[in-house]
Structure formats: structure tokens, C-alpha cells
Amino acid sequence: MATTNHIMTKWLGNMAFESNNPSGHNFKIDIAKEDGGDSSGFRPKALMLSSLAGCSGLDVASLMKKMKLEVEEFTIETIANLTDEHPKFYDKVVIEYHFHGKNLEEKKLQRAVDLSIEKYCGVMEMFRQFAELDIKTIFHYN
């Protein structure tokens, strides 16, 4: 049987919503004050970028652990271009994987990134359906 996610999102009044998650944690979604909201929660489109980075980051972190790689800091930056016309969507997304450390094994870290991008990350595959992806891996030595 196929796996499904069932999410309930409830209106809290004005422009705010609360959404649940299979993890048992809830979060609030809202829009900016200048758009009529109270700016009390996460923006929906930006959450998509967090989902993309989080999904791929989990893959890479898991592979770093398996390969016993020494990384002091690991960040993922997603810079997305929103179309001008409604419905506005991300048509281009730059994803930068930043690794910081003294003994970075570049080939292995790049392999971890590549495996996430090409094989494991389902959110990445979803983004591929509507956006051009530009992936960069950047190594910072302390």
C-alpha cells in the first residue's frame, strides 16, 4: 500500500492557519502585515524552501555520519526566484551546500550531496517538476 501523509490545517482567524505534522508538532502559517496578516507565522512559499533544504540536509547528514566525515558546520542556502505573474511560483532555485571545517574530505562530501540530489531527496524531485535547479557545493576551511 502506498504511503500517504494526512495533514490538517485549521483557520485561526484573519489570515493565520495552524497546520499539524505527522511528527506531532504543529506550526502556524501567516502572511505579512502589509498583505493583511499579522506576521505571526511562517510564509507558505518560504516553507517549501525549508522543506527542500531540510529533506536534502537530512540525507547529507546521514551520509556524513555513515562516512564518518569531520564537518564543523553545515548550512544550506536556498535562493529562489519568484515569477512575476499569478500564480507566482519558484521557477529558478539556487541551492548552496556550505561545509566548514579543517579536514573536509571534498570528494566524499560531494558524493553525499550528489546522492541526495540524484537519488534520495523526494522534495528535490518535486522541485524539478517546476523549477530550474542550480546546485553548488562550497567548502570553507578554518
Score class of each variant (00 low, 15 high):
residue 77 E to T: 14
residue 78 T to N: 13
residue 109 L to W: 03
residue 4 T to F: 11
residue 28 K to T: 13
residue 63 L to W: 02
residue 118 E to R: 05
residue 101 G to Q: 11
residue 71 V to P: 00
residue 119 K to L: 10
residue 53 A to G: 11
residue 78 T to L: 14
residue 89 F to W: 12
residue 136 K to I: 03
residue 20 N to H: 08
residue 44 P to Y: 05
residue 10 K to R: 12
residue 128 R to D: 13
residue 25 H to N: 06
residue 121 C to I: 15
residue 121 C to W: 15
residue 42 F to R: 09
residue 10 K to D: 08
residue 125 E to Q: 15
residue 20 N to G: 02
residue 71 V to L: 02
residue 95 I to T: 13
residue 82 L to S: 10
residue 12 L to K: 09
residue 83 T to K: 02
residue 116 S to V: 11
residue 118 E to Q: 13
residue 50 S to G: 13
residue 104 L to A: 01
residue 41 G to S: 06
residue 116 S to H: 03
residue 108 K to W: 02
residue 50 S to Q: 11
residue 136 K to G: 04
residue 121 C to H: 14
residue 94 V to G: 00
residue 81 N to K: 06
residue 142 N to E: 15
residue 138 I to N: 02
residue 47 L to K: 00
residue 81 N to D: 06
residue 17 F to S: 04
residue 82 L to G: 07
residue 81 N to R: 05
residue 89 F to D: 07
residue 69 L to H: 09
residue 9 T to C: 14
residue 47 L to I: 04
residue 16 A to H: 05
residue 42 F to H: 12
residue 125 E to A: 15
residue 124 M to H: 15
residue 51 S to E: 00
residue 46 A to F: 09
residue 13 G to M: 01
residue 38 D to Y: 08
residue 89 F to M: 08
residue 15 M to D: 09
residue 141 Y to I: 15
residue 101 G to K: 10
residue 138 I to H: 04
residue 87 P to R: 09
residue 75 T to C: 04
residue 117 I to V: 14
residue 9 T to E: 11
residue 138 I to K: 07
residue 140 H to K: 05
residue 63 L to G: 01
residue 89 F to L: 08
residue 105 E to P: 10
